[in-house]
Design a binder for these strands. Sequence first.
DNA 1: CGTCTGACGATGC
DNA 2: GGCATCGCCAGAC
Length: 106
Amino acid sequence: MAGFFQEVYQLVAEIPAGKVATYGQIAMMLERPRAARIVGWAMHQAPAGLPCHRVISSSGRLAPESVFAGQQRARLKTEGVTFTDAGLVKLRQHLWQSDDETKWEE
DNA sequence: CGTCTGACGATGC
DNA sequence: GGCATCGCCAGAC
């Protein structure tokens, strides 16, 4: 464990294509419900190969285009993710459910 | 060791 | 639904 970041990267790496997870959700999975900012910060320093484009804000908003060169949205579309007219990800349709969240069920 | 920062979240208007 | 404010946690300086 190099720290919280390492855990974040490991979890983000397990997000399947076509699905997305929110910062808060990830933080909660790591038992740090208030560390949503840390997750976002970890993403900023995310290593290459990490599907950080699948990690978005709780409102379905993507990271600033200046950070992603505007590729995040196009990439998600390619994976089958749909957006609202406002350009927000349809969380209800693409929100990821990890094994730890199976308690959600239906 | 103190302070600032930041791809956030919840709440209030 | 959008904007403003406060609160939070870990890392960088």
